[in-house]
Design a protein around this nucleic acid. Structure first.
Lengths: 210, 210
DNA sequence: GTCTATAAACTGATAGAC
DNA sequence: GTCTATCAGTTTATAGAC
């Protein structure tokens, strides 16, 4: 009987997961076929069902893996003792780099939120996203406690604006790349630097509470 | 013979487009069936193929409609004469409201952007984005010319951070709704207000160029 | 015996044709 | 409105390897 979470040591299961990740990220849940996944993984279709009892469970395993990788990449930031500006720099760099270099994992999660967020929202939130939420917002909460984050700002909004900019870069990059007026598609580090300035110092010429 | 762009005056075609929009947004391209779309539109499947020669062309027509609606909602902002703070307020409100109230159209476009192959309708996505890009960035460029946007800031980055926050709210709302630490899912206007403050005034306690 | 793999067959849904 | 050829996910039977 196929176990819900196959051993990571099993090479076959890992190759299936890799192939499934790419397929789901590229074609969506319905658009990805078990046949194509099996072929890409170099195993038979029946073998896929040996490791994962159903397409749904395979998909969930892919999502869980993506969440785990994301968490692994962000935990070190939360444990850093650097000043807020440096932590923000590290956070933006890490998130942008993770999004771009692990593009398939990022796409599969973003897609899931668009396709099924309302239906699977609760489970996703509880099982996958709440951990990352706590880790990431912690950076901003501690900065406010240290007096490095402006007192009037909700740390959650500061986190949201930061993560939003990273996600925006990732999601619109392939489209804006062909826009001659957008010079950042090929320069993530320049985008990151500019966004940090915008976030830290604001965009208003004459700061004012409105 | 089915025309690529059926007359908007034709009631049947409009109902098919509405049903297709909802189906594609909810189930994805592959997950949406022509049978279900026809049934939802209250017409026969053959009638769907009469108006749209293939599933692919129906999908492209849906994307085109979504792009047009988005543009219609944003053009008035670019023509406003209000001060920058008010224009920013209007922009965030309009974008957030459009995303939420026209959720199906927004989801269909955002999902299309996540397609890796970009084989289908990438030119369309570019067309959507480049038109809106000019309209939206114009608000920030003029603000800088008027001395209302801080001189050191690239207007494009200011635009990106603004739009990013709106998209982030829309995309993560259904997941963060179940997170007890995120209080904004049911309060878009509070989120908009907080984001405007973050964008205009920054999050650093002691502004510094880093 | 359990684990891993496969081929072949089954059932239902699909896009599209007539 | 019916038909069809195709392809989807899934199951069953089978068989070598540790």
């Amino acid at each position: 009987m196929p176990s819900p979470t196959p051993h990571a040591t099993c090479e076959g299961a890992r190759q299936i997961l890799d192939a499934a990740l790419e397929a789901f990220a590229t074609h969506g849940y319905s658009g990805a076929s078990m046949h194509a996944i099996a072929q890409q993984a170099g195993v038979s279709k029946a073998n896929v069902f040996h490791h994962f009892a159903s397409k749904e469970l395979l998909y969930l395993a892919v999502l869980r893996t993506a969440a785990q990788r994301w968490r692994e990449n962000l935990v070190p930031i939360a444990q850093s003792n650097a000043c807020f500006a440096d932590q923000l720099k590290l956070l933006v760099q890490r998130v942008l780099d993770h999004l771009v270099s692990e593009s398939a994992q990022s796409r599969v999660v973003l897609r899931e939120m668009l396709e099924n967020g309302a239906l699977r929202g609760r489970e996703l939130s509880e099982e996958i996203f709440n951990d990352n939420f706590r880790i990431e917002t912690g950076v901003f909460r501690r900065a406010q406690a240290n007096g490095e984050l402006r007192a009037g700002v909700d740390p959650i909004l500061a986190w949201a604006a930061t993560l939003a900019a990273c996600l925006f870069f990732f999601q619109t990059r392939d489209v804006l790349r062909f826009n001659p007026d957008f010079p950042y598609a090929e320069a993530p580090e320049r985008f990151a630097q500019g966004i940090r300035d915008v976030l830290l110092n604001g965009i208003a010429a004459h700061p004012d509470l409105s």
